[in-house]
Write a protein that binds this DNA or RNA. Structure first.
Lengths: 187, 187
DNA sequence: GCGGCTGATGTCAGTTGCTGTCATCACCAT
DNA sequence: ATGGTGATGACAGCAACTGACATCAGCCGC
């Protein structure tokens, strides 16, 4: 295994997913991950800021999808509906890798540090969504509320999707947004 | 400073707040906190699970207030309104220590690890609120949605309260819930 | 084809958060 | 006073993370 094997980052992600899944996040050392990837601990930290981040690589793509979906919604679309459409698009993406999502979520759910990291990633999504809404002329507070409410819906629908094996995730998202509307209306 | 000075935990919290405020969270070592409190590093970790937790002591009281508020709401109150009432009560509590809230929030906002910890504490609030709603007979998804939406409103209103110096935090909470209702209705 | 440049990796030493273990000491009940 | 109990100190150790410097593959100009 020479020094110059390609795709070091991908190998590290792969090794980390395997080890976190096999023996758990806490019981896995960074040295072990690096070793399985044929690299050193120091190199791991050149690719990822910390031991958690290796599980969240690729989150940027999802964020871009959310933002562009909001940006491309018709001007007449209400903020909450633009957000809903964005999450429907995200759900369609995630649905293509359901098994991967399930494994990843099982790892994250089993560890508090990883849950913390996931929450701050979702918060970053909310912030980006709110910015995208403001670009559409939505007022500050309304933009933040629509974005955060959207994240809330997504979190709940995501868990539900993985738990029930519901085949159509985008539809589940739609239904969950409808239920949010009902709840907010005081039903 | 003898071994048996009272209120070790309180002294650690005090010392940590001071040092985090003076030189920042990352630039403060646990040994320094313990030293300022007249204790050792080992004792710090007997009182707090980690370096972050020292800033979140007392969060349990707020959670209990939220839960009991929901539990005590009239049976006819809609879930979202029970949640709103709970956060109004919490806001009234926080308002009594506005300056403390401001300093604490400034420290947290300055550091990603602390923001992560805060988010998981809020998630814990959401979970407890959802449980309290289920005890009232609210359906699973609706309970989770009302709780998470409430947290979303609170997060936004809290920042707004500290940023604007608005005197009446509970009223700000009420207005923010109204705005959520408008946003969710597609306004 | 050769030498130098660049960027990715390896090596090593060090700091700090955090834990396990055992000794020590204040306080309290008897 | 005596022994038990709970909080604290002292010490050793692991693992996450960082800085500094060496090394090596591939590419570029010549």
């Amino acid at each position: 295994m020479g020094r110059w094997e390609p795709n070091a980052r991908g190998r590290l992600v792969q090794a980390a997913m395997e080890l976190y899944g096999e023996r758990g996040y806490e019981q896995t050392t960074v040295a072990e991950i690096a070793n399985r990837a044929g690299l050193t601990e120091r190199t791991f930290f050149r690719h990822f800021a910390d031991k958690r981040e290796v599980l969240f690589w690729g989150g940027g793509a999802l964020q871009e999808l959310l933002v562009s979906s909001v940006a491309e919604a018709p001007a007449s679309t209400a903020p909450i509906d633009a957000v809903a459409a964005a999450f429907e698009a995200a759900a369609a993406q995630l649905q293509e890798r359901r098994e991967h999502s399930r494994q990843r979520q099982a790892i994250i759910a089993a560890n508090a540090e990883l849950r913390e990291r996931e929450l701050i990633k979702l918060e970053s999504f909310a912030s980006a969504l709110a910015d995208a809404l403001r670009l559409r002329g939505v007022a500050d507070t309304a933009a933040s509320l629509a974005a955060e409410a959207g994240i809330a819906v997504f979190k709940i629908a995501f868990v539900h999707w993985l738990a029930t094996g519901q085949p159509d995730f985008p539809q589940l998202i739609r239904e969950s947004f409808d239920e949010l509307k009902a709840v907010a209306a005081g039903k």
